[in-house]
Nucleic acid binder design. Structure first.
Ligand SMILES: [Zn+2]
Ligand SMILES: [Zn+2]
Ligand SMILES: [Zn+2]
Ligand SMILES: [Zn+2]
Lengths: 171, 171
DNA sequence: CCACTAAGGTTACTCAATAACAAATTGTTG
DNA sequence: CAACAATTTGTTATTGAGTAACCTTAGTGG
């Protein structure tokens, strides 16, 4: 079976990189995406998105809540869940079902299929947009008379950085 | 891309079928699986497995808890979660991450990859064991230097029965 | 019978998510 | 601008998911 051409939307970032750039880019794209969709990126929603992009690690809802609570004096679960729901609808963040956590989407401007690679060592999540893979899965379902409308594809394993590190010295 | 040969481990059952047979078979296989693995299928574990097999729908942990509570006078979350953990380890049930729910495994006797088709209309879950698909996903990951160890593949959509029903009369 | 291990009971807690209703903010329209 | 509608956020409270820690009970082997 051939490996389909795939786009890496959010790769395993080098351990050290200019992450400020990641955040800036993500927020700029978010503005555009919301404007295009006719949705409002309010300060709260923008801040939550910024926090999600705080790293390339998946973020838990209650961690966001704790940070917001320090910043705003008033923050309850609905505060963060509503923002996250909105961001998901616009396609700015994805929810990782197997982790109950959220990650920013690297390419929110067009709808796309997505698959996630989750490193169990460093926790980093990479997002793929392998259309061939997605199509293959849908085809497998269709062969059974099942019409697929949504896919949850989450793969756990060890990322290339951690493999390299592991080869040098098992800590 | 060709569709790999796939085994349907737990198909979309006809609306009416002899489900008692499903349960009996599942419990018999469970006895064998536990005996082989040198694990004990205690009355509690057996009962939880039986409840999971109550239908072809995914079952929530707290629903199991409620039923057990009626039957046993004493049942707390650990009661059901410990049983479910055990059943998962032996491979007798699978957890559906996108639903926070559990389904019985139709073919627990040998280890296998699995994918799940979830009908959003009737709620039924079918389990596939499409090795080609699984291999294809691992290969996509490997192409990025990622060594996959576990896959969560859950597809939502409409099953063949519901499609047929829908064509006759949109209720 | 005694020591050891596995299984289950019990209490209590943290985290995940949503319901329902009130207040405030924003957008629209005469 | 004033009045109204729609959206967003605040607030309170609850349900559901899952786990930690500790204790008791039940099997197992000598
Ligand atoms: Zn970055
Ligand atoms: Zn890693
Ligand atoms: Zn059945
Ligand atoms: Zn169906």
């Amino acid at each position: 079976m051939t490996i389909a051409k795939q786009t890496v939307l959010k790769s395993f970032a080098a351990v050290v990189h200019d992450h400020g750039r990641c955040v800036t880019t993500a927020l700029a794209k978010a503005e555009t995406a919301c404007a295009t969709a006719g949705k409002r990126l309010t300060p709260l929603r923008r801040r939550v998105l910024e926090l999600v992009w705080g790293s390339h690690l998946p973020v838990k809802a209650y961690d966001l809540l704790a940070i917001l609570g320090r910043e705003r004096e008033q923050a309850a679960p609905p505060t963060v869940y509503r923002a996250l729901d909105f961001l998901q609808q616009v396609g700015l963040v994805h929810r990782i079902a197997s982790l109950n956590a959220f990650v920013g989407c690297g390419e929110p401007l067009q709808g796309h299929v997505s698959q996630f690679l989750i490193c169990t060592q460093c926790g980093t999540v990479a997002e793929l947009a392998n259309l061939g893979l997605s199509t293959s899965i849908s085809a497998s379902a269709e062969a059974l008379g099942f019409q697929a409308t949504r896919q949850t594809i989450e793969v756990e394993g060890i990322c290339k950085h951690c493999r390299k590190r592991g080869a040098q010295a098992v800590q």
